[in-house]
Simulated assay, not measured.
Amino acid sequence: MNIMVNEVPHQFSQPLTLLNLLSLLALNPAGSALAVNQVIIPRDNWPAHLLEDGDEILLFQAIAGG
């Protein structure tokens, strides 16, 4: 399975959820937001959201401003 994470290609041999992906890549989800194929995925859905071959993931830091 080929997945792009922040425009960096990654290859995995097994199906993954978003939460599994973060763990495998040692990425800290605190204060982060995730989009899969340009659609924001709510944090509550990360453990169940299965990734598919060719998905493009964007991980970014949520910023509050005033």
Rank of each mutant, 00 (worst) to 15 (best):
L22F: 14
R43C: 05
I3M: 02
P9D: 10
L21C: 09
L59F: 14
Q11V: 13
L59T: 13
A30W: 01
Q61L: 05
P9Q: 12
Q38F: 02
G65K: 01
L34T: 08
A26G: 06
A33H: 03
L25C: 05
Q14M: 10
T17C: 08
D55Q: 07
P29E: 14
I41W: 08
N6K: 07
D55H: 13
A35S: 09
D44R: 15
E52I: 02
A33Q: 02
V39P: 00
L22V: 11
G66M: 00
I40T: 03
A62R: 02
F60D: 12
L19M: 04
Q11I: 09
D44A: 15
Q14I: 14
Q14N: 11
N28T: 05
P9T: 11
N37A: 06
F60H: 14
D55C: 08
I63P: 01
V8D: 03
L18I: 14
L18S: 08
Q61D: 02
L59W: 14
G66D: 01
L51D: 03
Q61N: 05
V8R: 13
S23W: 00
I57M: 09
Q61Y: 01
P15F: 09
L16T: 01
N2H: 08
V39K: 09
L21W: 10
I40G: 00
S32Y: 08
P47D: 05
N6T: 03
D44G: 10
L50F: 13
L19T: 11
E7C: 05
L59Y: 15
L22W: 08
A62Q: 02
N45R: 15
E56N: 14
A33W: 05
P9E: 13
I63A: 06
Q11W: 06
V36K: 00
I40C: 01
E52R: 12
L22H: 09
A48G: 11
G54S: 03
A62D: 00
Q11N: 07
E52C: 08
L16G: 00
A35K: 11
G31L: 09
L51A: 06
L51E: 04
I41G: 03
P42W: 08
P42R: 10
H49K: 04
V5C: 10
I3T: 03
M4S: 13
A30R: 12
H49E: 06
V5D: 09
P9R: 11
L22A: 12
A64Y: 03
P42Q: 09
L27R: 14
L24F: 01
A26Y: 10
P29W: 11
A33E: 03
L22G: 07
G31A: 10
L21P: 08
N6P: 01
S23G: 10
L21K: 10
A26R: 15
N28L: 01
L22D: 08
I57L: 12
A26D: 14
H49L: 06
